[in-house]
Each structure stands twice: as structure tokens, then as C-alpha cells.
Design a protein around this nucleic acid. Sequence first.
DNA 1: CATGAATGAGGGTTCATTCAT
DNA 2: TATGAATGAACCCTCATTCAT
Lengths: 209, 209, 209, 209
Amino acid sequence: MARPADPHVRSKLLRAAELIFGSVGVERAHVDAIALEAGVSKGAFYNHFPSKDDAFRELVQALLQKLGDLIPRPGTDADSTSGAEFFARCLACDQRIFEFIWENRLLMRVILEGGRSHAFVHLVDEFAEHSRRLVVDHLQYGKRVGLFREDLDVEIASAFLSGGYDRLARSIVRMNERPNFHALLAAIQNNVLYGMARAPSPAFSGDLP
Amino acid sequence: MARPADPHVRSKLLRAAELIFGSVGVERAHVDAIALEAGVSKGAFYNHFPSKDDAFRELVQALLQKLGDLIPRPGTDADSTSGAEFFARCLACDQRIFEFIWENRLLMRVILEGGRSHAFVHLVDEFAEHSRRLVVDHLQYGKRVGLFREDLDVEIASAFLSGGYDRLARSIVRMNERPNFHALLAAIQNNVLYGMARAPSPAFSGDLP
Amino acid sequence: MARPADPHVRSKLLRAAELIFGSVGVERAHVDAIALEAGVSKGAFYNHFPSKDDAFRELVQALLQKLGDLIPRPGTDADSTSGAEFFARCLACDQRIFEFIWENRLLMRVILEGGRSHAFVHLVDEFAEHSRRLVVDHLQYGKRVGLFREDLDVEIASAFLSGGYDRLARSIVRMNERPNFHALLAAIQNNVLYGMARAPSPAFSGDLP
Amino acid sequence: MARPADPHVRSKLLRAAELIFGSVGVERAHVDAIALEAGVSKGAFYNHFPSKDDAFRELVQALLQKLGDLIPRPGTDADSTSGAEFFARCLACDQRIFEFIWENRLLMRVILEGGRSHAFVHLVDEFAEHSRRLVVDHLQYGKRVGLFREDLDVEIASAFLSGGYDRLARSIVRMNERPNFHALLAAIQNNVLYGMARAPSPAFSGDLP
DNA sequence: CATGAATGAGGGTTCATTCAT
DNA sequence: TATGAATGAACCCTCATTCAT
């Protein structure tokens, strides 16, 4: 191998690309800037990636792959799961996901903001739909095992819930300090998810418009 | 002086800009295309707007202004409001907002998707924070008048709720058919908002992780 | 029309392109250089031509069109044409063609040298085949009316003749002084074409290898 | 040291260069492609040649050298040569030349088409002038020994003849099948060269324009 | 005010050449 | 000597903005 002095150029470029894409979006990310950030020349970039967009795609696909691996399919465990166990498992999973998002907040930000480029807006949609399906799965499972109200509209609730998590992700990727994910997610569960539990709060029964 | 002075050029340009921005985002919207769509020349565009970005800003500010006008400050009504009335008023307000969003879905889409341009990402944040503040106000009011659980974390719940509405807005601006807003928002209220009401569902008390 | 001060930019660009293409070939012709030569900016070039190659194509097609118009189809005249008249007409036609080539020697040179670009080599072939077909037509006509030897192989002779004219064209486009076309072409006719006339010179009959 | 020292690398590179140059011309021939074709690395190429252009020059010079060696100077034989012998010798020589061209058609094609690069156009001219001088020599010799008409303009006839041969060469280097050179060249001699013989065909004497 | 040709800074990509191993 | 990653100068084309008419 020629010039094996620095076998890390590719990953340095990927890290630099992540940083630059995360700072200014795909469209305004200059290959020059990425190379400069990586400490190599523009030509070196093209030794490793066919094009700027390809580098972005590679980053995104790797990220979404890893993210997908974090998420278990629900309902594969014993059906005897109690409500407490169910919510605890959800919480643990959420925590893993959001910690991953925090670790990869630069790139996640680009993805969540549509690559800040018309060409990659579809990524937002795919990611959003992907996460909504996950919520649907969990809600359906929860409903099946009697954890949720029977009149829960899974489609509506999932859209809303995943929207809330989406917003949470959007705010996390812009934070400077690592938040306390356990406390945050537990509070969310306590404040929001339980609201979907079996009975609407009796205080308002009969009041529905 | 190819065409007689057209007093409506400016608004034709604004409409065209809205269409083009909405179709391809700010970055990929060419002034040529806007002028063509408006049926005037590129030069005419610059007679009315200092720059492409200024035209976009003007559109956005006008939109956000009108949107803000739709939203009443809570708590200005009589304090004796019952829970049913409170939720009904919320629902009515939400309906006005989402109908407005539907009417202006082209531009809203651009705003929600970050202007698809680095230069305008802050607009998303401002809009998001703006709508979150509104939710905070309502939650605080509701809490003050005893409609919500005392342990409701207003900051968390508002972030989550406005995230859900945000997601809803994002899906609406991409729809081809006008959805039934009343049914949709009532379902959301039934499924989500009531969950925050005074008592957590008794089924799970004690189970909190 | 805006800025009609100089309505000649397009033709100035065409002339400049002809000059630059003629000097260095299509591949090494820089759009900057063409614009500079025309006294306008690079952007102006793209106001008038979709691409560098398109400008070249336009130049070539116009030239070949005009060149084609110069060449009469043979045999449309009275069949009673005498040999002297036939050769005189050929001479007049050749003279028109070569004078045209001289007038357009810059661009002709590029065409004859394959655009000096791989992408345009086919032009040489097309042009060569085009001119060979013309010679074939004339030879066939001449043979039919008895001007040429019956054993004249029209395919071979035409390839050879058009090759000779081709070489002549190639040398003309590189000349600095206008040659005397009448004298030159008459001498060629006298030296070469008559050699194909009815009988091989008796001096060598029977000597063929 | 990936592969054992290969003493044939240089000639493998030359063969590869010939192939690539012949396929796409000098300008579009990438050093990468040449090295790949030769089965070595790009660096190896630069161990053997100072530059891409130098490799091309070397190929061309070797070819022209070998081509020059094929051609005898005329008139060194006995002066008593008969016309038949003269033409027969010419034919044999032509045949050697065109067979050589056929064997080296890849590179010849590049040369004949101007190296398809501005930098090498002069090679075409040199080669063309070189071959024209040869024809001049032969014509002068033939004229001196009385084989050709006294009014033969050697400069004109040679330009024309070498042009015809040039065209022939250009078509040969693009053929897929080896033509029958003897038949072809004999036909040319019969159709063209004899036309320059001593007397213009009597049919047209007096008709010259 | 309207027009649209002209401007020119910029950016993605290519590829001959260099050089550390 | 062989390797192939690194270099960086070019160069085509885009498009927001200017400005003479």
C-alpha cells in the first residue's frame, strides 16, 4: 500500500463531512471545506468518494442502519408482560435511541432537517415514517395486551407520539449539553404516554366535544 | 416598456415566489423561475425586492404575523371556564390554525422544512419555539385552573405536544386532499390531551419506573 | 430589448469561437478565452449557447450547410455536354468550393482535423464521405457520357481523388497567403483528372503489373 | 513490491499506451487506463516515461523511423529501368508501406488524426510532408527518365497523390478486415498514376481551360 | 418601472504528476 | 523499482445581481 502513513484519511474525511454537513447542510457544504477540515486536499476526497452526495448518502445509510439495529420489534417477548415491564422496556429502548442520537447529533441534525437540501428531503420522510411505524407497533402491541384504552386511535396517536419524539430529537441535536435522558424520557412517559392508558381521566368523561 | 404598468406585479411576484419556494425550496428557487411564473421579467423582480432572500423573508413574516393573529392568549376569559369549555375552545383554535396552515401549505412547507436552506433554518426554530410557547401558556392556564395534573411538567409536555402538532402540520402541508380537521383534532384531543388530565390512569399508579 | 447597445455579441462570440477553436481545437478552447476574445464575459457566452460543444456544433452545421449549397448535382444539365464543358464546370465548382474553404479556413481547419477532439472525429468522416460521394457522382456521370475510361474503378478513383482534394483543403486552411485557386485547380485537373480519361496512355499499355 | 520485477514492464506499457492512445486519442487517454491495461500501477508508468506526452512521442518516433526505413530512395537503381519496372517497384514499395500501416493501424490512426490533440498536430504535418517528399522524389525520377509527361507539375501532382494515399491510409487504419493491398494499390496505379503518364489522353487535347 | 443581456464569483469534478513507503 | 494515495491546477457551468436602454 502506498503512503500508508495515515490509513485513517477515509474516516477523517467522513468525520469532517459529518461536521461540515452538520454545520451548513449538504448544499452549502463545500468539498474544499470538508477536505480542509480533514487536513487533506480536495483531490483526496475524490479518492474516497465518487461525489459529495455519495459521501452524504454513505454517512446517512450507516447511521440509519445502526439506528435501526437499536430498536427491538415489540411483542416477541412473553405475552405475560405486565404494564410496568412494558413501559420500562419502552423507556430503556427510548433511552438507547436518544443516547445514540446524542452521540450522532451532528449528522442526525442534517437528516432531521432534510439534508437542508432539496435532494435529500425524502430522507426526513423516510425516517419519520420509519419511526412512526415503530410507535404503531408498540401501540398495537400495548393495545392487544390491554395496556391501552380500547378507543385509542393507533394511527392518530402514533403520528402524534412520533411527532413528539421527533421534536425531542430535533431539540437534542441542537443542544450543547448532554441532557439527562433517563429523567427526560421517564417524565415524558409519565406525562404523555400514560395519558393513553386504559381509561380517560374520569374528570372529563362526558365532556368530549 | 413591453407591458403596460401592472399595479399587481408585486403581488403576482409574491404569489409566484410562494409557489416556486414551495416547490423546490429557497436555495433551488431561481429568480428567473419566479419571474417567469409571475409573467414578468427578472428585472421586475428586483424592482420590488432587494434580493431573493428578502422576498422569502417578507413572505414568511407576513405568514407568521397572520398565524399569530389567529391565536388568542389564554386566560383572558373568565376564570370560571369549565374543563369542557376549555378543551372546546382549544379545539376551535387548533382548527382555525390548521385550516390556515392548509390554505398556506405551500409556504408553510418551506418554513417547516427549514426553508430548505441554511440561511433560514432559524425560522423553523423560531416558529417551533413560538408554537411551543403557546402550548405552554395553555398548559399553564389549564394547570392553574385545575384542569391538569399537578405533577404535569409543563416544559416537557409542551415540547412534546407542540412536537406532535408540528408533525401534524408537516404531514398536512404535503397532503393533496383537505383532511377533516375537526374530526382529526378532536381525535387528537381525545387520545392525547386528556392523557394529561388531572390523574394518571389508576391502572398504572405505582408502576412508574 | 434590454441593453441593445451591442446587438452583435452573438456573432462576435461566434467569430471568437471560430478563432479559438481554430487555434487550439475544441477540447483546449476555453470558454473564458472565447469570451475574452469576443470582449464579453464568460456568462455572456452562456446567454447565447447552451454549452461549448453546442457552439461548435452550430458553427460546423452552418458551415457544412453553406458548403453543401455550393455544390451542384451533376448530370442535371443537357447530356450533350462536351468533355471540355464538363471539365470546365467541374473546375468552376471546385473553385467556388476552395474559395469558400479559404474564406472559412479557421473553422474548416478544425473540422478537417477532427475538431481536434475525440468527440468530433465523426465530423471528419462525415465530411470526407460527403465529399467522396460528390466525386463519385461526377465520375459516374463522366463515365456514363463517355468521358472516362470504361475500366475506371469509380470507387477507388473517387476515394483517391477526394483524398487529394482533402489534402489540398488541409494545406489551404493552413496557408497565410491566398493561393491562386484557378491556376491551382486547373493544374490539378490537367495533371490528375485527365489521367482518368478514356484511354490509359498508350506508352504503358500492356505494362500493367 | 507487489509483483516480481518484470523486465518487460516498459514494453508492456508501450503496447498499452498504443492501444489506449489508439482508442481515445492522446488527450483522453488517461495514464491510469494505460497502467491498468499494462497491468501495472500508475507509478510504474512514471518510472519509465517522464510524462504521458513523452510516451506518445516515443511511440510515434519509433513508428516513423521504421516507416522511413521501408522506403527506398528512388533513382539509385540503374537508370535503364523501364516504365513497367518502375511502376512495379513503386507498387511493391507501396505495398510494404501499407502493410506496415495496417500492422500499426492503432497508432497510425492517432498520428493521422492529429494525435487528436493540439500538441501533436505538427506530427501530422511532418508525416504528410515526409510522404509528399517521397512522392516528389519518385515523380521527379520518373519525369527525368521520361516516364511522365513533360508538363507534369511535380509539386501539384505530388501533393495530390500523397493526399490520395493519405486518405487511403486513413481509411485503412479504421478497417476491421485486412484489405487486399496488392489488388488495391494496383488498381490505384492503374486508375490514377498512369494518368500522369507522358501524354494527356488525346481525346481532350486542346480542350484545356 | 420594465426589460433581459451582461457580469463574475463560485463550486464540483477531473486527472497528470508527485512522493512516502 | 513498484505502489497508489495525495496533490492542486484547471475548467465547465450556474445563477444572483446589475444596469443600459
